[in-house]
Nucleic acid binder design. Sequence first.
DNA 1: TACAATTTGTCCGTATGTATC
DNA 2: TGATACATACGGACAAATTGT
Lengths: 239, 239
Amino acid sequence: MPRVRPAYRQVADELRAQIVGGTLAAGERLPNEADLGRAFGVSRSTVREALRVLASQHLVETTRGVQGGSFVSAPDPVRVVEDVGGALGVLVMTPRLRVHDLLEARLLLEPSAARLAAERADADTVEAIRAAAGAPRDRREPGGVADHLDFHTTVLTATGNLALTVMGSPVNDVLRARLRRVGVAGAEWDRVDAEHRVIADHIAAGDGPAAEAAMRDHLVALRPLHERDGLWTDEPACP
Amino acid sequence: MPRVRPAYRQVADELRAQIVGGTLAAGERLPNEADLGRAFGVSRSTVREALRVLASQHLVETTRGVQGGSFVSAPDPVRVVEDVGGALGVLVMTPRLRVHDLLEARLLLEPSAARLAAERADADTVEAIRAAAGAPRDRREPGGVADHLDFHTTVLTATGNLALTVMGSPVNDVLRARLRRVGVAGAEWDRVDAEHRVIADHIAAGDGPAAEAAMRDHLVALRPLHERDGLWTDEPACP
DNA sequence: TACAATTTGTCCGTATGTATC
DNA sequence: TGATACATACGGACAAATTGT
């Protein structure tokens, strides 16, 4: 363990505390790097390393030029989802996180999410869900997976509960990326799309229980698509 | 928009691609900073800024001294949970993510998790759950919340599904941190502990449906504890 | 168009701290 | 104890980008 915390870490921690504590408000401009160095009693290089840490955590953004500088970032759910997805993508290559676990997690979350979406979605949201369900897939894409908004993520968003989106869509992203690599036949996609449309219809009709049941059936039917071929990650190879 | 990507970003991206792509295996040692600089055609300072980015994303770790250097980190679920919790903690201060959303997300996930735990937990896991449920709380802690392992997180872990832990425990962490700040009376804690023990008993008995129902009741009963005081508007007091 | 001002980006050289052998 | 091989930190200099005049 690091007996002494490096200076750049102390600076980063102090600035982070000020940001999450509200002393530095979102959008606020930090002093320039030279002044920050004087304020903390460190060199500009050290300040820069601290700023890189905060930037990679999406707490600050840095731009060049006059009117440039480092600014406190506004909290952005999209970044969080991307980060979690990236971290899950790394974890899913280890024996401790199997694809089966992701599918099970999704099975616990999304049927309920579909029910909530059916109970709450307004006209615009319903339209977005229909679009995600019915959009023609670009067969030329590798694996046939269109890269526009994912149907499952759209349903999660339609619940109006940001926590569900943040929790669920990284899982969807990882699973979708896997499907993209393994490839799926066109006929299978047609079935998937049809099931999506059924769910969308239930949500549009405001029928929560039906949407929940349809989503559950859909996810169960989807399972062999993900788990076939025993892809490298499914079974821990060597103990 | 960044018209040009700074060199430290390009170096970081290239190294990250090699790490997640498997070119650099976990535990592998990177060249020292001077050699990395020569390899990428940049200075040592630039290499260091890139390494700070990767280190803050837990992709590399650096140590000092001979036999030190930068090493590719092994994927670590605990780090992921901590990061997600931190990000959620920032998001929960915005109007887009309300405490109510966290409670609802927990209500969707944890009853099912309790059922899975009841179906799967072995003797050791059951013991861990009992310990988390029955451990005496240190009343001297601010808010009376003991800082040992959280009961709800223990249940999530007991499912054996790492995805559930990664998704759920950051939510628990944020909610618990909030309770810690607002403070809870001892009598309320006694009731909470009693409910925890009931759930633990159901899990120990292998009774999935009962565990699920008890967890659901518990979460519903817990709601007013979190939502009172209108604390969830939660603007930081400006000094 | 040109030019100046401001701020980050990048480099170099040097010195210090730290862990291992 | 000392030598070695790293990361850590400093200060100064110049380049590059952005905005305004």
